[in-house]
Amino acid sequence: MCETCGCNVTPGNAELAWRPVPHGTTAVDVLGRLLAANDRTARHNREHFDEHGVLAVNLMSAPGSGKTALLEATADALRQELRIAVLVGDLETENDARRIRARGVPAVQITTGGACHLDAHMVHDALHEIALDGLDVLFIENVGNLVCPASFDLGQHRNVALLSFTEGDDKPAKYPVLFRKADLVLLTKSDLAPHMEDFDPVRATNCLRELANPAPLYALSGTKRTGLQPWLDWLRAQLASVRAVQTSASPSSHEESHHGQRERMAG
């Protein structure tokens, strides 16, 4: 995005912006984001979070990388300290939400019915079922998929990508769109690391740096509850830094955008 006026023309794409058109037609220059409707709702979601002092964290990974196990362990570790809630995206079933509720944490299942990602509208709809008052952290467990979720802003403050020791350590290079956006990468299932000789955490780190991403990488095991401390400290630090911004920000035009917002996008 242009740093001067916020438009989408950059030195890299400026030559694409203006073109002549044939006779008999009218050209309307738009130069706006394709996902403008999603982005508006994402901003609106973020306003909801900010009004309530909530840190929203989007968890993305391949299916079976341990997102739900991480949330179970996190819920137990922070029980006395922070109030958390979870939105769980899945193609089908309520299984993951049930596992999280069993840890005493409110969870809303978003069943996408075949859609391979969450979008801002699905999250907005689900927010109506969550009491944000008094909440500290809202986790959004995205649909297990390393491609599609990366294109949709949900209104989260931070992105966390999970990469388990049972996967390839070069996944950041294979899925650059998602890993480039990660604010933190968790190397999960670290209890299996001794059996996974092919997985080299240094190689995973190098792949991430080659995407110009300075995010930290922490190894942990959700099921064995080991290595959790750096992750919990990171969460506390993000909550503090997001709250500092939230309290210094001026009152938003949230009500206005609530009424002006566009209707649900098909997804």
Binding site: T10, H23, V28
Partner: peptide, 25 residues
């Protein structure tokens, strides 16, 4: 480094045909 281009997903332009009066540009 920082990305200066490459992550765009933009609607640049729409060309329209008038059904009644053809518009000359």
């Amino acid at each position: 480094t920082e990305l200066t281009s490459g992550d765009e997903l933009l609607l640049l332009q729409v060309e329209l045909s008038r059904e009644i009066d053809a518009v000359t540009v």
